[in-house]
Write a protein that binds this DNA or RNA. Structure first.
Lengths: 349, 349
DNA sequence: GTGAAAGCGCTAACAC
DNA sequence: GTGTTAGCGCTTTCAC
């Protein structure tokens, strides 16, 4: 690599060898001081410390890693770093890992399995100590295969894979179930839902909650009312437009936080008033939900808690007692009633 | 480090030496194949490739880094990973760096200079190739000092430091100036502003824009109408409450996207209607601004563009021709008129 | 075009 | 307690 920045400075940092020479002690002794190993006479330690200070010595973590085979680095793969739903979890995981002296490298897969596989190979080369990741498409067998061959502890975030693997997920099933049941209870019979792909756990679980709530209420299910796709606002808008402008439109809609803005846009452009003409429930609580007039009823869960749990699971693999079986952590979600739902108007049924 | 995960598997990955032995060639030849160096007879290359395949050989990036002194890793420090204003820039920078084969390690400083200093030391130990960062408090001399001693290319994000250093920033001055001038033009004389600390560039530049616009319009400045502090919604709410419930309250308010939700909350609780009783302009466009009723007029800039520019500057240091002087990139911001501003009501002046 | 050997900076096992 | 030494896995002269 051509790094003319450092090259031009003709600068070389001090090595442990130089510290040893200046302090008049052996290599090993300096190493012991650096690593706070016991058994170093305090007079020697002082001399070493002085020499280190003198030379502005900074231990080389790369060399340490090569020698000890530990990099103190955890990889993290999410589809999109900027997505607020991931950001909270990633941020919390990063904090927790930091406290345990790990550093996080973060990469975006942009929902591509190919990219994920590349990143996994890269992480393997770099000898990362562990990995927290979402998986773009759970059905692709290449990811679990490569995950195995990584030989490093992995924690799945909001995903399920048909292998023994630690995982942290939110209980989207119960969240969706309660939300739908609530809507059915206040009289809705045609409930639309726009949420993420069923290729991944959250979308599947929400679909399951949707179905089960309808079944339990003996309400017929119209498959055309649900859509599972990308989580962008654009998609939400298009899908919502389609659903709401058809004949016999839904009287209530659920949508992921990402798509909700699109749904709101669509509702506005169609002149629908919330909750009079349309009841709304968001999966995931954001500022937007609170500031909306009227404030949106939401299915809420704690993003930071998800990240903390993932970091905890990983750390327990890294330094805890050996664990045979994979651990699955399921975190709760709750229905928070605000003011975006009302019984359907008779005129619209 | 105790990593009983790998230990229990009693697994050792193949080394370049083993590949060489299996292929019946020398170490050097394998290395040449791995690094796509010229001058390897194709018959040899084939044998090496076969052996690599056979042993599932994966090069050890740690060893490569020790030897070549390049880690292909860029550090990134922001105050809060989950903050949507940073997330866009960080995400864009990560993508750009990835394409140039770099990996990003991301850490949060939580606005603490002490933490920043710790992280910088950590990055130095790890021999990162470069750094993109915000600085919590520009006035603290310890950060620039340590930045120097890092001897690695650094790009500042939305910050200014009294040293020769590459930097990318948004033109918050012009954005603020235009926003205030607009409010003054439509008749406001008492304009409140709640934004980030003047310890950092954006807050200072907005304050400068505020002042200059008032000066140019010959409108007297009431210092009590501006507040520079933390960027949380809670703070925004408290500050806005104070301003709006005092006697002779402002008829218009500007606030950072983070604090805006607090301002909206305060306005609601005081029964103020936007824009009739209070005009609002947000620094930074978010979904919230669009979804608010009425949609908020905003000062907008492209977060992703900021991140791309930062990555570009860094990459040019890393592999471009040597550059003597620091480069400063100033990115534009624009005033987007929506529907949250109106002339002040005579009754309230 | 290929092989041999030195060494990147460090830790840990072993002598003393 | 402290010094000596081997070697982590790789790249890169330098001979041939």
């Amino acid at each position: 690599m051509v790094n003319d920045f450092t090259a031009a400075e003709t600068f070389r940092r001090a090595t442990i060898r130089e510290v040893a020479r200046l302090a008049g002690v052996s290599l090993g002794t300096v190493s012991r001081v650096v690593n706070d190993k016991s058994s170093v006479r305090s007079s020697m330690r002082a001399r070493v410390l002085t020499a280190m200070e003198e030379l502005s010595y900074v231990p080389d973590a790369v060399a340490q890693s090569l020698r000890t085979q530990a990099t103190w680095t955890i990889g993290c793969i999410v589809s999109d770093i900027a997505n607020p739903l991931f950001a909270g979890a990633v941020s919390a995981a990063e904090s927790a890992l930091n406290e345990a002296r790990y550093t996080m490298v973060l990469t975006a897969s942009h929902d591509s399995t190919e990219r994920e596989l590349q990143i996994l190979t890269l992480f393997q080369r770099r000898r990362l100590d562990g990995l927290i990741m979402t998986v773009a498409r759970e059905s692709d067998p290449r990811v679990p295969t490569q995950l195995r061959s990584l030989k490093m502890p992995v924690v799945l975030l909001e995903r399920a894979l048909p292998i023994e693997i630690d995982a942290v997920a939110t209980d989207h099933y119960t969240g969706a179930y309660h939300a739908i049941r609530y809507l059915l209870t206040i009289g809705h019979r045609r409930i639309g839902m726009i949420t993420v792909t069923t290729e991944a756990l959250p979308g599947r679980e929400r679909a399951r909650g949707y179905r089960q709530a309808h079944l339990d209420a003996a309400c017929p299910i119209d498959e055309s009312l649900t859509a599972h796709h990308g989580l962008s606002a654009e998609y939400g808008s298009i899908a919502a437009h389609g659903l709401l402008s058809g004949r016999n439109p839904p009287t209530a809609m659920l949508a992921g936080a990402g798509q909700m803005i699109g749904v709101i846009r669509a509702a506005r452009s169609l002149g629908l008033e919330v909750p009079r003409d349309l009841s709304l429930i968001s999966f995931g609580d954001t500022e937007l939900c609170e500031i909306h007039a009227p404030p949106l009823t939401v299915v809420r869960w704690d993003h930071r808690h998800t990240g903390q749990a993932a970091a905890g699971l990983l750390l327990s693999r890294l330094s805890g007692p050996r664990r045979e079986h994979a651990l699955k952590v399921l975190l709760p979600s709750e229905l928070v009633l605000r003011h975006s739902c009302a019984p359907p108007q008779a005129s619209r049924t």
